[in-house]
Design a protein around this nucleic acid. Structure first.
Lengths: 210, 210
DNA sequence: TAGACTTTGTAACAATTGTTACGGTTTTCA
DNA sequence: TGAAAACCGTAACAATTGTTACAAAGTCTA
């Protein structure tokens, strides 16, 4: 595990901290679709992402969903952070977007490291900053963009985090992420196909030119 | 100033830190409507709010606006925080919602205190947490609520931060905050008046029963 | 391979939100 | 005090998004 840590977090953390993480952290490999965090649960450890991508969703009491953002290599979950530090319940849901490798760090250590390592503090601050920015960008999308533009942005983001121009999702799944209905997504995708921006197949969408 | 600080931040900070803030901070009094932060500007100091309320807005390149949240006594601006620490540009706009008293803390001190005072660290973490939660609640509102429900929530929040059941705003101003049009707001307010929830006057709205 | 299930396409329609237009009232200020 | 500006109400209409319904095609499995 130490090698994975050095490869992916060597730029952020000093060796001493990497060693500590190596000692107390547990390595975890999850498959696409695995539910890492469910809303309302208490969280006892924090994920450092080694590879793959995690999608973070908001879920309202009626079960309506909305994609907030993706986490990738070098990222951590700011909501988890603040839940751990503040001992609040989770406000979000986290699902493995792709197969992913993580190191889980127990919550007790986090406060200790905050005092001990400047690099850890900066990492935590930086994570918060990035998530706040991402949350605000999500607000931009919902508030200022129309559904067709949001869909385009979604396809772009999705194809980026998966490093694949083929998106293996049904229209229904996309509709859940964008909090709209399947029919709306089908309609807009068809328009994109007519504009030559995507090619539609069963269970996947080929991004051509966006 | 030290007395104001003790009254408002005494619960968070130890005396030593309060003294430091007193020495390097500058006291600032602003009137309702004063623009504290404009998007794209660099920020050299961070506000601790003593009294009054600040409204934080997102503004897109076309000049479209959207209210993100309000800051009150004991709050600080997380975006400013992260802009200071990360030396990024401001992504938001801040306007005094009411007359307000602030203490401006120069950015250089912030990193120093982060190392030196645990209470400061916790304050910063907690601010980030609160703002992230608020940003996500804003996402909830835009994504899951219809305009009439958003308007109701807006009136509630507004009447709370102003400690006044009379809201002194024109329909146009409300429309800007919610990023919709004046006609839509007038229409919905009229419905609320018919339902006995508000009373409408020129330049103000009396919240009766929501 | 037949039937069940999933996925997609499409039409028709409903609801919500946005736009334009205009008249009436109140306020401002020269 | 009189004209201009700001504010609000309302109607008519447009655009966008959401809903319901159903058919066709693909996939799975007994």
């Amino acid at each position: 595990m130490i090698q994975e840590l050095k490869n992916n977090y060597g730029n952020f953390f000093e060796n001493e901290l990497l060693e500590e993480i190596n000692q107390v952290g547990t390595f975890k490999e999850v498959s696409e679709g695995f539910e890492l965090i469910r809303p309302g649960s208490y969280i006892k450890s924090m994920p450092l992402i080694i590879s793959g991508a995690i999608k973070i969703l908001r879920e309202d009491p009626d079960g309506d969903e909305l994609l907030l953002y993706f986490l990738e290599r070098g990222d951590t979950c700011a909501m988890t952070l603040s839940c751990c530090l503040g001992h609040h319940k989770s406000e979000i849901k986290a699902i493995a977007e792709t197969d992913a490798k993580l190191v889980m760090v127990p919550v007790e250590k986090m406060e200790e490291w905050t005092t001990k390592y400047k690099s850890w503090r900066n990492f935590v601050f930086d994570s918060y900053h990035k998530r706040l920015i991402e949350a605000i960008e999500t607000i931009d999308s919902i508030a200022f963009l129309k559904m067709d533009e949001r869909l385009l942005k979604y396809l772009k983001d999705k194809s980026k985090v998966n490093s694949d121009h083929i998106i293996n999702n049904t229209h229904q799944e996309i509709a859940y992420d964008l909090h709209t209905s399947r029919v709306v997504i089908s309609r807009l995708l068809k328009k994109l196909e007519n504009d030559g921006k995507v090619r539609l197949n069963r269970n996947n969408i080929e991004v051509i030119n966006i």
